[in-house]
Amino acid sequence: MFLAIAIQDGFIFILGGVLLLSVLGLLGIIYQQFIFPLVSRKDSNRLVPVQTGDHYDLVVDEVSRFAQFSIGCKTGLLATRCNAISEDHLIFQFKKGRDSEDYTITILKNAPTFYKPPRMEMYGKMESKETFDSYEIIGHPAEFRISDKIIKERMVNFIEIALSSSFYFNRLGKERMKFTFTIGKIQPGINRKVRFRDDTYGFGKEEEDADT
């Protein structure tokens, strides 16, 4: 009888542990997917609009094995300061393999976006979600065009952003993967001479071309 009670208590204890781990895992997913993007949204310190050639590097933490990179107007890790770009226009989520430098990259789209997959030649309208592996963008970046509208399957004004990956050695001599976001073509440019009240700028001729 005592053995049966002990077995029953042990089973309940194990079941409780499994249930606790499941709840913690679910809470972790909810935090990463929904809560973190909201609490981390704040105005960037960047007060000038992006320009061609700007680049931003990202290295995923080895402990959490997760990182998120958002592109917006005034918020996000890449704040364009362009009023045609929405907050959280694009959200990139990086999930690292447990014992390797392999990553799964998920991109969430919240506003008009064209997407050119790695090794492809043509842009196409991006669906709400895209996923690919990190090795695919070594030497063959994924490219995005973002704007506020698409007219007849075309973007008249847009900002191009390329995502690539490469390896480097950190201070401990360990080989790690680094992701780089690079600003490409801005069509037709950003008018830096006209700043709106909310500290944003609109598409237009670049400052150096404004007087020509």
Rank of each mutant, 00 (worst) to 15 (best):
A210K: 13
K116I: 01
E160N: 09
E143M: 07
A210P: 05
D198K: 04
E160V: 09
T113C: 14
E175F: 09
M126D: 05
K129P: 01
R176Q: 09
M177L: 10
K109E: 01
N170Q: 07
R195C: 14
E136F: 11
F167S: 04
I107D: 01
M126Y: 02
T180C: 11
L163P: 10
Y135K: 06
K178P: 11
L108P: 02
R119I: 02
Y168T: 13
D198C: 06
K129Q: 02
Q187N: 15
E127A: 12
P188F: 07
R176G: 03
H140W: 14
G202A: 11
D198R: 06
Y201I: 01
A111P: 07
G173R: 10
I146F: 00
E175R: 14
M120R: 14
I183M: 04
V156F: 09
D198Y: 02
R176A: 07
I183A: 02
R195Q: 14
R197C: 00
K125S: 10
M122D: 13
R197Q: 06
A142V: 13
I137H: 00
Q187F: 07
I105S: 03
L163E: 10
K149S: 15
F158S: 02
E208N: 07
T180A: 02
P112Y: 11
N157K: 13
Y168L: 12
G189L: 00
L163H: 12
F179Q: 11
N157F: 09
I107F: 05
S100H: 00
Y201C: 00
I137G: 04
P141S: 03
T182S: 03
Y115G: 05
M177Q: 15
K178F: 05
R119W: 00
F181M: 15
K193A: 08
D148R: 12
F158A: 03
H140E: 07
N157H: 13
K129Y: 00
K174I: 08
G202Q: 03
G204H: 13
K125C: 00
K129F: 01
P118A: 08
T180K: 15
Y103E: 05
F196S: 06
L172T: 10
F158N: 06
T106C: 01
N157P: 09
N110W: 04
S100E: 03
G189H: 09
P188K: 09
N110A: 06
E130I: 05
I150A: 10
R119Y: 05
F114A: 09
Q187C: 14
R119Q: 13
P117H: 11
I151L: 11
A142T: 00
E101K: 02
F196M: 08
L172G: 10
S100F: 02
K129W: 00
G184W: 13
N157D: 14
G184P: 11
Y168G: 03
S164V: 06
P141Q: 05
E160M: 14
D211S: 12
P118K: 08
N191F: 13
L163Q: 09
M120V: 00
E207L: 06
E130A: 14
D198T: 10
P117L: 07
E153W: 00
I151S: 05
K185G: 04
A111Q: 05
K185D: 12
G189N: 03
F144Q: 01
P117E: 00
E208A: 15
K109S: 11
R192Q: 13
E143C: 06
I183D: 05
P141F: 00
R171Q: 10
K149V: 12
R145I: 09
N170M: 00
R145A: 09
Y135M: 02
E206M: 07
N157M: 02
F196Y: 15
G202I: 01
Y135W: 06
Y168Q: 10
E207Q: 12
